[in-house]
Design a protein around this nucleic acid. Structure first.
Lengths: 115, 115
DNA sequence: CCGCATCCAACAAGATACTG
DNA sequence: CAGTATCTTGTTGGATGCGG
């Protein structure tokens, strides 16, 4: 059990957003869900290259709590669970797109420097 | 000394960008430098609320290596060092702006839900 | 003032094996 | 398939002290 720790809770929308999206995987998860719409747990795990099921579960739970991800379990055998973005989650699209665009642009800039 | 570990180096501009910006402080540092243009080390440390000088140095070094931050030391006594964004660093402005915008919008959405 | 080094505790993340 | 449990490793970050 982690010790309770007072977070100063900066009154700053920028830092609040960073708190919600902190960690190594959240951007990648949101990116994948934006692209695919809805994914089952296993497919999401395959799409987010390198993640383990342990971390995926953890991150998905946090994203659920913040109202960014929606979890839909079906009472089938074997179990089926689908994950998708909420409307709030989809409103992160400009952020994801900006990161994607910078990645493409930056890669081009690096390639140009070599020549 | 950390053991050297092969990174699979995903051929994906999005994940490459995440690698460059990973960690707890890089977005906040870039945000501050975008806002202020140029800052001395001490002022940057004050502006990035909560960071320690140890972490600030670490993050700045990584950002330098990736060509995002420029370090300008002056041979004065006591020493003066100014940090600013390179052109490549300034090209991250859309990313920072998108995060900022989402923070503002999301805070408004949360406030609306309470009423 | 700027930056680095060391020791150390707390936590995040990885690997692996396992259950309903 | 979806999710858990446990063990191990790595990173974060505080405290402190030192050198240019």
């Amino acid at each position: 059990m982690p010790i309770h720790k007072e977070k100063p809770v900066l009154d700053c929308p920028f830092r609040e957003t960073l708190d919600v999206l902190e960690g190594k995987w959240k951007f990648a998860i949101i990116h994948s869900l934006l692209h695919h719409g809805t994914l089952r747990f296993k497919n999401l795990e395959r799409d987010v290259a390198g993640i383990t099921s342990r971390m995926l579960i953890k991150e998905l739970k946090l994203l659920q709590v913040h109202g960014i991800v929606l979890r839909r379990p079906y009472p089938t055998v074997p179990p089926t669970v689908e994950y998708s973005l909420t409307e709030c989650g989809r409103s992160l699209e400009p952020v994801i797109e900006a990161i994607q665009a910078w990645g493409v642009q930056n890669r081009a800039a690096l390639a140009a420097k070599i020549n």
